[in-house]
């Protein structure tokens, strides 16, 4: 009973928030609605008994990702209205719906045929403990690879958007880079 009430309430809120994100013409409204929708999605994870996933959702999405977007938006001119593509709206909505239904059917096909068995059954421990046990045994290598990928992303972010942008190689033309190299090669006392 309460599960049903919670599900319908959060489903309505999530759909409303993401609808605002997709349709509004103000970038700031879109960002705020997206952050709210992320928090509402974590409610589904708590309902489903995936406590650790819900906590990670709140920390990573509404904390880190939204803060990154907020910092990124300070670089852009967010006060002006966002321009939209002028196209056939019905075609867009129809194509999106068909693709979404197809994607979900692909996911649920093996479930409907009852062809799956639980490899890692949910036991009697808490959710966080079980997630840890599975993550550090079977999924240890993907976990490490994900860690390396996050490191690569962090270095890429620092190189691309870090300080000293006036000397960044990504922003310079070829001539400027050559000039800078020549400047560095020249001995100081000859200047």
């Amino acid at each position: 009973m309460f599960e049903a009430i919670a599900f319908y309430l959060f489903a309505f809120l999530t759909i409303a928030m993401f609808y605002i994100t997709v349709t509004t013409s103000q970038a700031l409204y879109a960002l705020t609605a997206l952050a709210a929708g992320m928090i509402f999605i974590s409610a589904f994870f708590f309902i489903l008994g995936a406590d650790f996933l819900g906590a990670v959702q709140i920390v990573v999405y509404s904390g880190a990702v939204m803060a990154l977007y907020a910092f990124g938006m300070m670089f852009f001119d967010t006060t002006r209205e966002v321009q939209e593509k002028k196209g056939n709206q019905y075609l867009v909505v129809g194509l999106a719906t068909i693709s979404a239904v197809l994607a979900v059917l692909i996911f649920s096909a093996p479930i409907i045929s009852d062809n799956i068995t639980a490899l890692y059954p949910v036991g009697t421990h808490g959710n966080t403990q079980e997630v840890g046990m599975v993550l550090f045994t079977k999924y240890l290598v993907p976990f490490e690879v994900a860690a390396v990928m996050l490191l690569v992303a962090m270095i890429a972010g620092i190189v691309l958007a870090g300080k000293k942008m006036d000397e960044s190689l990504t922003l310079m033309t070829e001539e400027e880079i050559k000039d800078m190299r020549a400047e560095k090669m020249r001995p100081k006392d000859l200047k």
Partner: peptide
């Protein structure tokens, strides 16, 4: 997913 795809196509 449909809402997200609409956003990808029209933004």
């Amino acid at each position: 997913f449909a809402i997200g795809l609409v956003g990808v196509m029209k933004r």
